[in-house]
């Protein structure tokens, strides 16, 4: 018997199912005839629990694969492996967090420029290229949606004050 990544995922899934099954008891029953609102989610969650249990048993029965003590679990390797993905996550959260203030146009340009620069490098030539790319690409898409398709994209407080 061994503990590996799948074991941890299966335990997490079982916990998730437990919380959601518990939450399904709170689903209101308006008393209408026919299928209750909690019926279908309950079936899905029961099946998900069974499958998670199967995964747990299978993972514990497995011998060596995905062992959590492998080289991949070294903190430095993990950081390097997920560095770029973490930058994307962070930039996207910042973009969404400041969307109300910056709007889609300024926020979009800053997001693309920031991401390009963090992923591509900080050399002067690249920074100039990145700023041109971000302004042109977001400018075109923003114009298509705003003027062509008449979609009102978030304006942002900065442009509104202007």
């Amino acid at each position: 018997m061994s503990i590996n990544k799948d074991t941890i995922v299966a335990i997490f899934l079982l916990l998730f199912c437990g919380i959601m099954i518990n939450s399904s008891f709170d689903i209101e029953d308006p008393g209408y005839q026919g299928m209750k609102a909690s019926f279908w989610p309950s079936i899905v969650l029961c099946l998900l629990s069974v499958m998670s249990l199967v995964m747990l048993i299978k993972s514990m029965a497995a011998t060596t694969d995905n062992n959590i003590n492998s080289e991949n679990s070294n903190p430095q390797n993990v950081f390097l492996k997920f560095k770029n993905a973490s930058i994307c996550f962070l930039m996207f959260i910042l973009f969404l967090g400041f969307l109300d203030y910056l709007g889609m146009l300024i926020g979009g340009v800053l997001f693309v420029f920031g991401l390009l620069t963090f992923l591509g490098g900080f050399e002067i030539k690249k920074i100039i290229n990145h700023s041109i790319i971000s302004v042109i690409t977001i400018g075109i898409m923003w114009s298509i949606f705003t003027f062509g398709l008449k979609v009102i994209l978030p304006e942002g407080e900065i442009l509104r004050i202007w």
Binding site: G108, F111, V112, M141
Partner: peptide, 30 residues
């Protein structure tokens, strides 16, 4: 790839917003 990824991520956000005009949809995508 990094240029493509950065621009497409922003395009996805714009496209997803245009679906129902709600920022919540972009959070869902994320």
């Amino acid at each position: 790839m990094y240029v493509l990824a950065s621009v497409i991520l922003a395009y996805c956000a714009i496209g997803v917003f245009a679906l129902h005009n709600v920022v919540f949809d972009i959070w869902v995508m994320f």
